[in-house]
């Protein structure tokens, strides 16, 4: 664990400030913490750096405008592009000085893990539905914390115009910890 209680403390503090009237019951603290964590972490999931490759289409998108990927690039049978025009035809192990982004194993998330077009509730359902997520909660924590392709979002390099690509709205560590808290407290989804 990289950022233990540092992040957890304010989340719990926020959870305990919910006003409770006589008629209301108090939510279990873990559920509150899980929902609060999801509410914050989803902003990363919805960011173009993540969403452009978690598409619900047979192609990736690119840029903050989320345009269809140039050159007719398609998902292909194994989410690595079509047989002769693979992601790795252009995307190498590292970001290129020319602005072509790179990371080992550059690819699309499978369609079962598509987030595009879903609201926050839908994204959460996707993440927690064993049939679609293809990841256990523990694997999700690992993916969101340590997968080099996920972490690329925080090292996205410059674009083809030489301008820095926008990073997700919180640090990788903060995001990873929120995922951990969300899962540790039951991976609760908003209704």
């Amino acid at each position: 664990m990289r950022f233990p209680s540092l992040i957890l403390a304010p989340i719990l503090a926020a959870a305990t400030t919910i006003a409770v009237t006589a008629e209301e019951v108090t939510l279990p603290q873990d559920e509150v913490a899980s929902l609060a964590a999801f509410d914050r972490l989803v902003a990363v999931i919805e960011h173009p750096r993540c969403m452009n490759c978690h598409t619900s289409t047979d192609f990736p998108r690119q840029g903050n405008a989320r345009l269809r990927h140039n050159m007719g690039v398609a998902r292909g049978p194994e989410n690595h592009g079509t047989p002769a025009l693979q992601c790795a035809t252009c995307h190498q192990d590292n970001n290129a000085p020319s602005g072509v982004p790179g990371n080992a194993n550059w690819h699309l998330a499978p369609l079962s893990m598509a987030w595009e077009g879903l609201d926050r509730r839908g994204i959460c359902r996707q993440l927690t539905d064993p049939a679609r997520s293809t990841m256990t909660p523990e694997q999700l924590v690992e993916h969101m914390n340590n997968d080099p392709l996920v972490l690329w979002a925080w090292n996205p390099g410059n674009d083809l115009n030489g301008l820095p690509r926008e990073k997700p709205p919180m640090s990788a560590g903060e995001f990873g910890e929120l995922v951990r808290v969300w899962v540790a407290n039951g991976a609760q989804c908003p209704d």
Partner: peptide, 22 residues
């Protein structure tokens, strides 16, 4: 910048844009 394909070669039988592959 891998935008035109002029520099395409094969690496282990797969197409590769040699202008971006180091």
């Amino acid at each position: 910048a891998a935008l035109c394909g002029c520099c395409t070669v094969h690496a282990d039988g797969k197409a590769l844009r040699s202008c971006v592959a180091t």
